[in-house]
């Protein structure tokens, strides 16, 4: 079974970005690429070739959902699970997200100690 190794993380708030990256690197032992915007993610996603994408919904310029749409045109989201981290999501949009390949929505504020395990679960559910 393929191991979850590379995670593309999109988060515009630097402090959250740091806490999240450290939690994933230190606790999960993952390789994390943090992008501060959707644009940066789109530019780097193919080069980075992530196993999983973790992103916020509220992003400047381009929101998370739009970003997923555009990512879908660059990479095969059937193979790369997308996990949202958000405090603001209407339940009816959940369905829409699933259509786009979003596997899981984790609520903010998240527990950084749990986050790596939660992503591992998503990964295993996909490849288990």
């Amino acid at each position: 079974m393929k191991q979850l190794k590379r995670i593309l993380h999109v988060e515009d708030v630097p402090s959250i970005q740091v806490v999240t990256r450290i939690a994933l690197e230190k606790i999960g032992g993952f390789e994390v690429l943090s992008c501060p915007s959707g644009q940066a993610a789109l530019e780097q996603v193919q080069a980075f070739a992530p196993d999983l994408i973790l992103l916020d919904v509220m992003l400047p310029q381009m929101d998370g959902i739009e970003l997923v749409r555009q990512l879908g045109q660059l990479i095969d989201l059937q193979q790369i699970p997308v996990v949202f981290l958000t405090g603001h999501l209407q339940p009816e949009r959940l369905h829409e997200l699933r259509q786009l390949g979003v596997r899981q929505v984790l609520s903010k504020p998240f527990d950084p100690l749990q986050l790596a395990a939660q992503l591992q679960q998503v990964w295993e559910a996909e490849h288990g």
Partner: peptide, 10 residues
Amino acid sequence: LTSITGALGL
């Protein structure tokens, strides 16, 4: 707060 809590937690 999320950052502070997260950082302290780590």
